[in-house]
């Protein structure tokens, strides 16, 4: 099934995707920054978006595999539950925000707050990520093949973070941790799933120091 946003509306495309009773291959051409494309899918469709997508592309995805041949605006794959979203360009801020599951792969860079409040999604960024990435990350893994901006992993819960390049600064309660066998295994699996030939041995692991989990009575004077 083919759509062309020069003549089809975003609403018509999304409605058609939702109406498909059986898994299908769907392509959409001439995307020019349109928002909310391929959102809320809940069947294992293969959707190819050709052009630069706007905000919230493939948001709330379940089961579907959405590929974007272009850049995406803020909130790509926000609150994804399962499936895969693959961006062959750069992503704006809050990529994979609050996502519970599935795999988000970004071939280029992701801007600020990538993986903010992630709750189980795996995110592989082949370029660099902006500041406050994985902020309040609760579960899942963020893999960064380039560099990370300021305050990486601020107020982190249990999300795993792997970075190959430099980290501008770590956020509150985020620390570098040793890479154990199970982490190398997880990283190897994620890099393979993302089609990356990076060497897992080149990465460092970051995680929560778990110092913010409980109120410290020593700090009572601050309140």
């Amino acid at each position: 099934m083919k759509f062309d946003l020069k003549k089809d509306s975003v609403r018509a495309v999304n409605q058609a995707l939702h109406d498909l009773a059986q898994p299908a291959d769907v392509s959409v051409d001439h995307i020019s920054g349109d928002h909310n494309l391929a959102v809320g899918l809940n069947r294992p469709h293969k959707v190819t978006l050709n052009g630069h997508a706007g905000y919230y592309c493939a948001g709330m995805n379940q089961q579907a595999e959405v590929t974007v041949h272009g850049n995406v605006g803020q909130g790509v794959a926000e609150n994804m539950m399962s499936g895969k979203v693959h961006v062959f360009g750069n992503a704006s801020q809050s990529a994979g925000a609050t996502a519970h599951g599935g795999l988000l792969v970004i071939e280029g860079d992701a801007a600020a707050r990538c993986g903010i409040s992630m709750k189980g999604v795996d995110i592989v960024v082949k370029g660099s990520v902006g500041h406050m990435s994985a902020f309040m990350g609760q579960a899942g893994a963020l893999v960064v093949c380039g560099d990370a901006g300021d305050a990486l992993g601020d107020s982190l819960y249990e999300a795993h973070i792997y970075v190959k390049g430099s980290v501008a600064s770590l956020g509150a309660d985020c620390v570098e941790k040793s890479m154990r066998a199970e982490h190398l295994e997880e990283l190897t699996r994620l890099l393979e799933a993302a089609g990356s030939d990076e060497d897992p041995a080149d990465f460092k692991r970051y995680g929560s120091a778990r110092e913010l989990y409980n109120f410290k009575v020593d700090n009572v004077g601050a309140y």
């Binding site: 020019s32 630069h52 706007g54």
Partner: peptide, 8 residues
Amino acid sequence: SEYHALAS
């Protein structure tokens, strides 16, 4: 503000 504005 958005790519949409550059598309033309």
